[in-house]
Structures are given as C-alpha cells and as structure tokens.
Nucleic acid binder design. Sequence first.
DNA 1: CAGTGGTCTAGACCACTGG
DNA 2: CAGTGGTCTAGACCACTGC
Lengths: 264, 264
Amino acid sequence: MSHSPADHEAPSAESGSGPTAGLTPAFSPLYQQIKGLILQSLQSGEWKPGAAIPSEMDLAARYRVSQGTVRKAIDELAAENLVVRRQGKGTFVATHAEHQVQYRFLKLIPDNGDVNSEGPAQRDIIDCRRLRASADVARALTLRTGDAVLQVRRVLSFAGVPTILEDLWLPGGPFKGLTAERLSEYRGPMYALFETEFGVRMVRAEEHIRAVVPDPAQCELLKISMGTPLLSVERIACTYNDVPMELRRGLYRTDTHHYRNELN
Amino acid sequence: MSHSPADHEAPSAESGSGPTAGLTPAFSPLYQQIKGLILQSLQSGEWKPGAAIPSEMDLAARYRVSQGTVRKAIDELAAENLVVRRQGKGTFVATHAEHQVQYRFLKLIPDNGDVNSEGPAQRDIIDCRRLRASADVARALTLRTGDAVLQVRRVLSFAGVPTILEDLWLPGGPFKGLTAERLSEYRGPMYALFETEFGVRMVRAEEHIRAVVPDPAQCELLKISMGTPLLSVERIACTYNDVPMELRRGLYRTDTHHYRNELN
DNA sequence: CAGTGGTCTAGACCACTGG
DNA sequence: CAGTGGTCTAGACCACTGC
C-alpha cells in the first residue's frame, strides 16, 4: 500500500478499484482526487469566498496524505484562480470582491493602456425584468425554453462617456430576489454581489466576438452616430463544474478603447 | 550550504551574492535559476525545435541539483508552452511545425465550432516587399524609423471564402532572404517556416481588437460589400525574452466566423 | 528490458506574517 | 515566537515508450 492513503475520508489511487467506477479504468493520481475533494468543499460552501481554507498540514492530516500531495492539488486550484496563496498567512478562497480588480473578465481597456486613468465606471441600469427564456437564451444557460430568467440591461460609462451597452440573462432560480434596486445600490463588481447574496461564484467564461453595426436604439443609448461599428461580445460565465450561470451580450465602443488579449 | 548546488555550471540561490547582481537583492529560488539556464540553451539553439532536451536526470547532474528541482523548472517551461513533455519518451522543444494545430495564435473559428470542417486554408499572397519602417511599425518592433522591414499582405480563405486580410511586418535583419516565393511555396504554418529557415520562434503574442468599417480596397480584396463591419486585430508576436519580431494587422470577417476567447 | 516522465513520501530548512 | 506557505532533497515506486 504505497500511496493508498487511508480509510474514512480518503480517496483511492488504484486503477479500476476506486470510486471512479466507469468504463475506463481511468487511473487518477492521488493529488487529482484530493483536488476533487477540495473542490467539493469549495462548491458546498464549507469554505466561503475570501476565507482561509485549512493549512496544508491540516488538509494532509484530514485526507491522510503527505503535505506534498496536498500542495500539488492546491497548486492546480491556484493556477485556475479558484484559490489564492499568501505566504505566511494561508490559502484563501478566491473572490471577486477584493483587490480592486474591478472587472476580472472585462478585457476592454482604454487606448492609453491605463485602466486607472478614468476612475470607477458609471453604471446605469436601463432595464431589469423577469421573463421567460427564449430558445437561444435557454440553450446558453442549459434551461428549457420558457423557464424563468432575469434580464438586465445597463450602460457602462468611463470618464463620463457611454462605452458599453450590455444585456445579461440570469437563471431565475439561483437569482431569486435580485432586483434593479439591489443592483444599482451595490458598490463593487456585480460578480461580488452574486457571490455574497446568491452564493454564485463565477469561475470561468467564454466569449464570442464579432464586429457589428448597431441599430438606432443602440446608437441612442451609447450616444453614437449611426454607422459606428461596435464589438459584439457574447459571454457565457460558469460556476464550478462549468455550469453556465450567466449569458451576457455586450456592445463595446472601440474608438477610445480596445479589447486586449494575450496569447500563449 | 543547504541548497547551493555546486561549482562549474551551477547557479547560486543566495540572496545578494549570486549572479543577480543588481539593486534588489532579489532572492531567486534555485528552480527559477535552472529555468533561466534551460531558457538560455533554448534561445541559443543548443536544443532545436522539435528535438528532445536532455532527460531530467541528465539536467540534474549537469546543474548539480536534484531531479525535483529540474522538474519544477521544466514544469514552468511546459506551462508556458516552450517545451512539451511526453511520458516515456522525453521532453521536447515546442515547435509550430507539428500537431497540425495549423494556426496556434489564430482565434477565429467557424460559427459551427468545427475547425476541421472547412479543410486547410487557402493562402494568397497579394504583396511582399522590402521597405523602410514607418514610425508606428518601428515602435511596435522596437526598431528605428526608416529601418528595413519586410511587409507581406495576404488573404486567407476558408472553404473558398476570403475571410482574413492581413498585413504583416517583419524586421529586415532576422528575416533576410525571405521572399514571396518562399512564403507561397511553403506548406504549413508561417511560424514553422520562420523557425526552420530563420531560427525565429514565436512564443507569445498580444492582440488589440477593434471593430472597423473597411475601405473600398479592402472590400475588394475580401469580396464583401461596403459597410460590412470587420474585426481589426493587431498582433505583436514575440520570441524568447519578449522581443517583438512581428507586427500583424488583420481584418477578420465575422459573419460566418467569430473570435473565440476563454477567460479564467 | 532499460530509460523516460509522473507520482508519492518524509524530512529539513527558508521566507513571510502576525501576535 | 509559532504558524503558514515555499523550496530543496533523496529515494521509492508507477506508467508509458520503444527496443
């Protein structure tokens, strides 16, 4: 029993005999199983966003494995931004509510490159209503057509200039009780509100980008002239386990800002 | 001397006494120094793209450190896509010439999501000439205005439909001898040609994206009607040590394709 | 079968944080 | 000072590759 750790709360690393009972024997390293267990605790809310998780030694004892194995599991969670390590202090559950990285998923930056030069964004909620999901919205959120969804439309302005017009759709269930008032009162990132008020933590997202010409109503809201091309950014944001929890369709002005992306 | 490895080719981990002689004492972990040494060998061409680098044991012996330390260094290089590990075979210098990931940096995909559905792209070189760098091109490539650069203009077509029109600029020095013939003859990714023929390996890139309306000449080349909005994608690609070696300005059609981006 | 990368362990020591 | 994460080591064994 070289690395089959223990008995009560511990995983098995053996091929084909462990809890991974499936068609593929699917050998899974111990640290991956530990990662899975930690992930479960994160999802279940055992450790809340912003709070510290147990120390590596504690987790090692809990799962009956060595510190090094726990470390490797946490390394991966940290690489996925699910957790933040701080030397001398501990490991903390990542959150959207801190570090003044106001918009973690927003890749639009001013052309001068300095995000801080324009101060905090002004956020105006144009509309906020409950309705039934259309076919495409339902598909994106893995709901059924007609299920209850919350739709929000808002404009973001930087340095007083309307720059982003976005619609977003949230599944009605998890976001029961969300109102325009709550949204407009709240200081800080929307995703932080989702975290603290609804226990929904956005972890990953995917964006599909196109160039479009806006219609008159959209031009009106962004105070731009007809014919100005805009970036159309459709985002699907997911919680743990890639469960989609938000669909967002944004129109970005790109005459004073641009979408910045790094490729590796 | 707990982890000060050795004498002849080995680094020092001590703060302020090592080769990192600078203003900041800058403690640097051993594995970072090893990573730096491996990086040097990659840059210098000691190990060519596609070839295997020495085994972890060999490197450990060479640098007089433990295998675990070499491993951690290689882990980071692998995470940065500079190197590829293959269990049972070895660790290989990454290259653009394999794996049929035809365009490693191209994020434009067909709306159906299946990159393979449209077969290999058709590439038509419109123009290829040597000229003197304008101010903005020179700045992007860290050259001086008026320095020799090579400019290439081409159209990429997918399933017979012209989809991308791009101009690219390369520094004249490193790419001496590159001609339109070499480019059009070559099968495979352009970056693979750069690697094998000019020893320039693109490692990282940054893109700035905007929505634009093309001018008549551009519409002509892409065979689209006036007023069709396009994605403007400016890319700066770098070799090792973030030295910029290519400026690319592309116009992407987004009526049948879209730019896909993942956020973490 | 030998050689490679991949996992796991146990223990030592270092650097940082806060009381 | 004790507690945390961070580094380094040495050794064992596993999984995969190719001869």
